[in-house]
């Protein structure tokens, strides 16, 4: 059956990640063409991705949690914790492969703690993750008091090398969570997760195991934080108990710009990725515009505000187009 072009256009406009994609593309083009002296070549993109992999992974994880109607502000502290544990293990002679597996398992376990407290103890997600953020940060400081340490040389050379001759290995750390998520999303369980986010009561009455969906989301978020932490550890080749602490709000903002609805049930991980890339480019732009040091933060925040306004306006429109979904705001 032939469909009119307008049909495809409408489908495109309903893509939740569209605003974030446009913002990213726009900032990319501005940096490439309007700012003189920028060479966007392979090494630039590689180092850009390397720097932002941790935030990207975090925003993938936090998207999953937000889709269930929750939130997770402990992922940054979890990244710090994973980083210092990995470094300490390697410095005490543990081979890097088991060290990284231990770190990933620990990250998933941490996510499970969040999920358990939210699902079974019924503490609101914001408060739970506020408390666990404190605990993770404290654990990180206990494991490593001062920044420092070294990691196995093979890790650094792997990370700074190339996959298949031209791809930066950091892409692996982003692709693995995305692939896992896509597989989950297509499974019946994935649909159930969206149902839980849309309307928890109705989902429960339909026989959906709400707790299991939530547990998956939080464990997945922990896993993503772990992956991001490992990537970051390879990149900086050292440990720092404060490594990821400032990244939480950025990951959440990126996910929201990426089209995810904070009430749950709407959005996808692609948006969060585009959002993070946009943020990285934004920092680049602010530096390149040679803005006065006391104006930088204000300008960045204002552009961010404009981006969020646009993203949410578009999202509200497309959500009402879809009809029947829980709406935000009164």
């Amino acid at each position: 059956m032939r469909r009119p072009l307008s049909y495809y256009l409408r489908k495109l406009l309903k893509w939740s990640a569209l605003p974030a994609f446009l913002l990213m593309a726009a900032s990319f083009l501005i940096v490439k063409y309007l700012i003189t002296g920028t060479n966007i070549n392979a090494s630039y993109i590689t180092s850009f991705l390397n720097t932002n992999t941790a935030v990207i992974c975090m925003s993938i994880g936090v998207t999953a949690v937000i889709l269930t109607g929750g939130i997770d502000i402990s992922l940054g502290a979890l990244v710090s914790l994973c980083n210092v544990v990995a470094v300490q293990l390697m410095m005490h002679g543990v081979h890097y492969l088991p060290a990284l597996i231990i770190v990933l398992l620990m990250a998933v376990a941490a996510g499970a703690v969040n999920g358990a407290v939210v699902s079974y103890l019924h503490v609101p997600p914001l408060l739970t993750t506020f408390a666990t953020q404190t605990v993770f940060a404290g654990l990180a400081l206990t494991v490593m008091r001062v920044p420092g340490g070294r990691i196995a040389g093979e890790c650094t050379s792997f990370y700074y090398g190339k996959l298949f001759g031209f791809l930066p290995p950091t892409i692996l750390f982003i692709l693995v969570p995305v692939v896992i998520w896509k597989i989950y999303r297509r499974s019946p369980e994935g649909t159930r997760l969206y149902a839980v986010g849309c309307d928890e009561g109705k989902a429960f009455l339909s026989g959906i195991n709400v707790e299991r969906c939530r547990m998956f989301a939080y464990c997945f978020a922990g896993f993503c934080a772990g992956m991001g932490a490992i990537a970051y550890t390879f990149y900086v080749s050292a440990g720092d108990p404060d490594l990821g602490n400032s990244l939480d709000m950025r990951a959440i903002s990126a996910a929201v710009i990426g089209g995810v609805s904070l009430s749950g049930g709407y959005g996808d991980v692609a948006g969060g990725i585009f959002g993070c890339l946009f943020f990285g480019m934004l920092t680049n732009m602010i530096v390149s515009f040679k803005v006065n040091v006391f104006t930088q933060n204000l300008l960045e925040a204002l552009i961010l505000l404009a981006g969020v306004l646009m993203a949410i306006a578009v999202r509200n429109r497309s959500m009402s187009l879809k009809g029947g979904l829980k709406r935000e705001g009164q």
């Binding site: 939130i71 709000m249 959440i252 903002s253 929201v256 609805s261 904070l262 009430s263 104006t295 930088q296 933060n297 204000l298 300008l299 960045e300 925040a301 204002l302 961010l304 505000l305 969020v308 306004l309 949410i312 306006a313 509200n316 935000e328 705001g329």
Partner: peptide, 18 residues
């Protein structure tokens, strides 16, 4: 604009800091 309070106040906080 029907922006969720969490995000609106979070970003507004950054604007105020700036």
């Amino acid at each position: 604009f029907r922006i969720p309070p969490l995000i609106m106040t979070l970003i507004m906080g950054s604007v105020v800091d700036g």
